[in-house]
């Protein structure tokens, strides 16, 4: 999970690293995901989150499709 400056840098990095393209989105969306995903991590009553709830978070920030299926 990396940051890139532009589409051009993304394509150059994928070629250099030999990675198949995965999923690309904006840092704004990543922050929305981070707020939802990690916001309860330090809660005193934290419990492991059911997969269905985690999937809902991904769906809610627009990360949908086969790549984002947790199970």
């Amino acid at each position: 999970m990396v940051y890139l400056r532009s589409e051009e840098h993304l394509e150059r990095w994928l070629r250099a690293a030999g990675h198949e393209p995965g999923a690309t989105f904006s840092a704004v969306t990543l922050n929305e995901l981070a707020q939802r995903w990690w916001g309860s991590r330090l809660d005193p009553d934290w419990r492991p989150r059911p997969v269905e709830e985690s999937q809902t978070i991904l769906d809610d920030v627009g990360l949908t499709g086969a790549f984002w299926r947790l199970a």
Binding site: L4, R5, E20, G22, T24, A27, V28, T29, L58
Partner: peptide
Amino acid sequence: GADLLVHFVVPAR
């Protein structure tokens, strides 16, 4: 940093 891109290589599962 709103103009930055993020890339995930590994699928969620």
